[in-house]
């Protein structure tokens, strides 16, 4: 069994032939099966491009990407790759196809030519996993942003994808919608799905197993949330924020409170302060 579900080997990519700047500039990254990885970086850091490269929507200019051992530039494997690494996009409105929730979730398996009775089973299972079963007959435009994004995730689940790549799924949601989506992702990770979450929000990134920081098309930091966010200066240099709790802890340390410098969870700080 292959341990790394996604292998990125020294990949470079530029959008136009004449562009002299690479959007992704020599990235190498391995993602283990079952891992929850967050990729962060400010606008134009190449993180969304990287996601599209993994899903074979874009092909690398140089280098290779393997999804479960399949080369993304191999045309004959295209549909297997897209099935293995399902992708959820930023705008919840622009990725739902059908006029009824359950029809939309069925869209993926229908494209694969799955038997009708099997599609029914998958759709029901996916709806239950994201907790939207009672909404199955609603038209998507009457749902909230968080609910729409959960439907989009369910649509990928129905494809039986091992890995789910999410390109800023919470960017257009309100805070409660963001929490909904994060809870769903954590639940999926628990049942063994590999999650690659591209995000702007540090509070979401700290919930991952691993955080990758991108800047100018390259990976700058890579490690557990604690390792990455204790690098306060580096993070600020790449135009990113640290989680609010970390910021607060740093201020407290400056004021002379005795605290470790790698606090990233609210609970952690509360426990330490209340000792």
């Amino acid at each position: 069994m292959e341990d790394n579900i996604i292998k990125i080997e020294n990949v470079k990519f530029k959008y136009g032939k004449e562009d002299n700047k690479y959007a992704v500039d020599g990235v190498s990254l391995n993602i283990k099966k079952g891992q929850f990885t967050a990729i962060i970086g400010h606008n134009g850091s190449g993180k969304s491009t990287l996601a599209k490269l993994i899903n074979s929507i874009l092909l690398p200019t140089e280098g290779k990407i393997f999804v479960k051992g399949m080369d993304t530039s191999d045309d004959s494997k295209l549909w297997d790759i897209r099935q293995t690494a399902g992708m959820v996009f930023q705008n919840p409105d622009n990725q739902l196809v059908a006029t009824i929730v359950e029809e939309d979730i069925a869209f993926g398996p229908e494209n694969q030519g799955v038997e009708p009775s099997e599609i029914r089973k998958r759709v029901d299972a996916a709806l239950n996993t994201v907790g939207m079963y009672e909404y199955r007959r609603r038209p998507p435009h009457l749902l909230s942003g968080g609910q729409k994004q959960r439907i989009a995730i369910a649509g990928i689940l129905a494809l039986n994808s091992d890995c789910i790549i999410l390109d800023e799924p919470t960017a257009m949601l309100d805070p409660s919608g963001r929490v909904e989506v994060m809870e769903t992702l954590k639940k999926l990770n628990k049942i063994g799905k590999t999650i690659v979450l591209i995000t702007h929000y540090m509070d979401e990134a700290v919930q991952a197993d691993r955080v990758v920081v991108m800047d100018k098309g390259n990976i700058r930091l890579d490690g557990t949330p604690k390792e990455v966010f204790s690098n306060l200066d580096a993070i600020k240099k790449f135009g990113l924020d640290v989680p609010q709790v970390t910021e607060l802890a740093q201020v407290l340390i400056k004021e002379g409170v005795d605290l470790p410098s790698d606090i990233i969870y609210v609970k952690e700080l509360v426990d330490l302060l209340c000792q």
Partner: peptide, 26 residues
């Protein structure tokens, strides 16, 4: 812009036209 994004999302969900497609509701 929506059309563009929708097309990409549909392709990401393995849409490749009507060939060999099944329907959930019969």
């Amino acid at each position: 812009r929506r059309a563009d994004e929708l097309a990409m999302a549909m392709e990401a969900r393995c849409y490749r036209g009507g060939e060999n497609r099944t329907r959930m509701r019969q």
